[in-house]
Amino acid sequence: NQESVVAAQLIPINTALTLVMMTTRVVSPTGIPAEDIPRLISMQVNQVVPMGTTLMPDMVKGYA
């Protein structure tokens, strides 16, 4: 089963992602794949992401 990127903390809107903000977990439905974490660093979220929420492609500016 593929791991997806999950918020390790509350991420406010327009925050640039850092490694410490993200963790990985096997979730359903699947979100952004864990191997894309290096690509996500410094990208901004376009909404508030509560802790434990799976990051979906449409939540990250410039990802999709």
Rank of each mutant, 00 (worst) to 15 (best):
I13L: 15
G31N: 01
M43F: 12
L40H: 00
A8P: 01
A7H: 01
N1E: 10
N14V: 02
V26P: 11
T24I: 11
V60C: 03
P38V: 13
T30N: 15
E3Q: 10
N14W: 08
R25L: 08
M59A: 06
M51H: 10
I11H: 00
V20P: 12
M59V: 07
I32M: 03
M21H: 13
Q44F: 10
M21G: 02
I13M: 13
T24H: 08
T23Q: 14
M21S: 06
A16H: 08
E35T: 15
P50H: 15
M51K: 12
L10W: 14
V27P: 01
V26H: 06
I13R: 12
T30P: 15
D58P: 08
M21E: 03
Q47C: 04
T53K: 10
V49N: 00
N46K: 13
L10G: 10
E3V: 14
I11P: 00
E3K: 15
P29F: 04
M43E: 05
Y63K: 02
V49D: 00
Y63E: 05
P57N: 13
L40T: 02
P29M: 09
V45C: 04
P57M: 06
T15R: 08
G31L: 01
V5A: 07
G52W: 13
K61E: 12
M43V: 05
T18E: 10
R39H: 11
I41M: 14
T24Y: 06
I41L: 10
A7W: 02
L10T: 09
A64S: 14
V49G: 00
A34T: 13
Q47G: 06
D58I: 09
Q2L: 08
A34V: 09
V6K: 02
T24W: 05
L19G: 08
V26Y: 09
P12T: 12
P12H: 09
Q9I: 09
V5W: 02
T53Y: 09
A64W: 05
P50N: 09
A8K: 09
L17G: 00
G52M: 07
L19S: 07
I13A: 08
V6Q: 04
S28N: 11
V45P: 02
S28E: 15
T23K: 08
V26I: 14
Q44P: 09
N46H: 12
S42G: 15
G62P: 07
V6E: 04
Q47M: 11
V45F: 02
L40R: 00
T15W: 04
M51A: 15
L17S: 00
P50E: 10
T23V: 09
M59G: 02
L10V: 14
L17A: 00
M43I: 08
D58S: 15
N14P: 01
V20R: 13
M59D: 03
Q47V: 05
M43S: 04
G52S: 08
L40Y: 02
N14R: 07
I37H: 03
Q9R: 07
P33T: 10
P57V: 06
R39A: 12
T18C: 03
P12L: 05
T24D: 03
V6D: 00
I11A: 00
T30L: 13
A7R: 02
S28P: 03
V5S: 02
V60T: 01
T30W: 13
M51T: 06
M59W: 15
N46A: 11
A64P: 12
T15Q: 08
I41T: 10
V26M: 08
S4G: 04
R25E: 09
V60Y: 00
L10Y: 12
Q44K: 12
S42F: 07
P33C: 05
T23C: 03
D36P: 00
A7I: 02
Y63D: 04
V49C: 03
G62K: 15
A8Q: 08
A34M: 06
L40Q: 00
P50Q: 15
L55H: 01
M56C: 04
I11T: 01
T54D: 01
P50W: 07
M56A: 09
V49L: 11
P50T: 15
A64D: 14
A64E: 14
N14M: 12
M22D: 01
T15I: 06
S4T: 05
P33N: 07
V27L: 05
Y63C: 03
M59S: 03
V26G: 15
P38Q: 12
Q9A: 10
T54H: 02
N46W: 04
V60G: 02
P33M: 11
Q44Y: 15
T53Q: 11
A34Q: 09
T23P: 01
A8I: 05
E3A: 15
T30S: 14
V48N: 15
A16W: 13
D58R: 12
M43C: 03
L40A: 01
E3D: 07
L55E: 00
M51C: 03
V48A: 15
M56K: 13
P50R: 07
L40D: 00
E35W: 10
N14I: 02
P57F: 14
T30K: 15
S28C: 03
I13K: 08
L55S: 01
P38T: 08
Q47I: 09
V45A: 05
E3L: 15
V45I: 05
T30R: 15
V45Q: 00
V5R: 01
L55K: 00
Q44S: 12
S28V: 14
R25K: 15
L55C: 02
D58V: 09
Y63T: 05
I13F: 11
M51E: 13
V60H: 01
Q2V: 12
Y63V: 04
E35N: 15
L55F: 13
R39M: 07
V27A: 11
A7S: 15
